[in-house]
């Protein structure tokens, strides 16, 4: 059975600046990282491999340099790494992206002669923040979708069911679904492993498969910019108003705290 982790290479957002003229991210000289949530998805696919004998495959769509993210996946222990990369995939929104990834997942299963048990995605990326690609893939593939998973409680391979905990605002939800499923994961799910040096060195020489549209054979109107009903009209850093300092700091901590609470209550930001 296959466990497929979808990962995305994103700019290291702590270092991103927005070009004030073009309203686009300044990408020059900015290092790329694997989307942090995706590293947890990747780690979980490797745990499925270790504990349940899944074949762990890492999948990404992006420009050729996204290969680095897949090498990281290989260094962590992924059995296979596939990059969907084609000029016609560029400029994709979440719908077009999920079209490509869903097709790739189907193709992976076909090539391996095996079925997909679990597709794993990060809950969202730190550059787009839409949280739509995972559910999009599930819809395209007709998989159950379990989002915001912070714990896999049980995985019954005989009955082919998975029971997970979903981390929602202020509560947890325990849900069960039959395989195959698509799950999106939060950071609390696991602690991604740190690759050993032999694994890193092996990953340097391992091959990352690159699939273009000649392989996936998708309708060019369903991928990339052409297949994207969403486009970004403007991107900007919101202005942040400077606040004021209230109270007397260390000289009167209690009084300052009281002032703060009054202010929060008056703005209805604090429930009594």
């Amino acid at each position: 059975m296959l466990a497929i982790a979808c990962i995305k290479q994103v700019p290291d957002t702590t270092q991103v600046q927005i070009d004030p003229v073009t309203n686009t991210l300044v990408r020059e000289g900015i290092p790329f990282i694997v989307n942090p949530y995706d590293t947890h998805a990747l780690e979980e696919s490797l745990r499925l491999k270790d504990r349940h004998g899944f074949r762990a495959v890492a999948l990404s769509m992006g420009p050729p340099n996204a290969e680095a993210a897949l090498r990281k996946a290989l260094s962590m222990g992924a059995d296979d790494a596939i990059l969907c990369s084609d000029r016609c995939f560029g400029g994709a929104d979440t719908l077009a992206t999920s079209n490509v990834l869903a097709a790739a997942i189907a193709r992976i299963a076909e090539e391996a002669g095996d079925e997909v048990g679990i597709v794993l995605c990060g809950k969202q990326t730190i550059d787009g923040d839409t949280a739509q690609v995972g559910p999009g893939i599930a819809s395209r593939l007709g998989f159950r979708q379990l989002t915001l998973v912070d714990k896999i409680l049980t995985l019954d391979m005989e009955k082919r069911t998975i029971r997970v905990s979903r981390k929602l605002e202020g509560r947890h939800e325990i849900v069960e679904a039959p395989l195959p499923v698509m799950i999106t994961v939060v950071r609390e799910l696991n602690r991604p492993r740190y690759p050993t040096v032999p694994m890193r060195l092996a990953a340097v020489n391992a091959s990352v498969k690159v699939w273009n549209n000649e392989v996936l054979k998708l309708d060019v109107n369903s991928v990339g910019l052409k297949g994207s009903p969403t486009w970004v009209s403007r991107i900007f850093s919101p202005e942040r108003d400077k606040g004021e300092i209230i109270g007397y700091g260390v000289n009167d901590p209690e009084g300052t705290a009281a002032l703060l609470i009054d202010r929060l209550l008056s703005k209805d930001l604090l429930a009594v």
Partner: peptide, 27 residues
């Protein structure tokens, strides 16, 4: 290097060093 076994809190340090070349992971 061989077993990837170390106290949990070092994972952040290692990632920060590799990614941002400082222990805190500041830009």
């Amino acid at each position: 290097e061989m077993e990837s076994k170390f106290p949990e809190e070092l994972l952040n340090l290692f990632e920060n060093m590799e990614q941002r070349s400082n222990p805190w992971g500041i830009a």
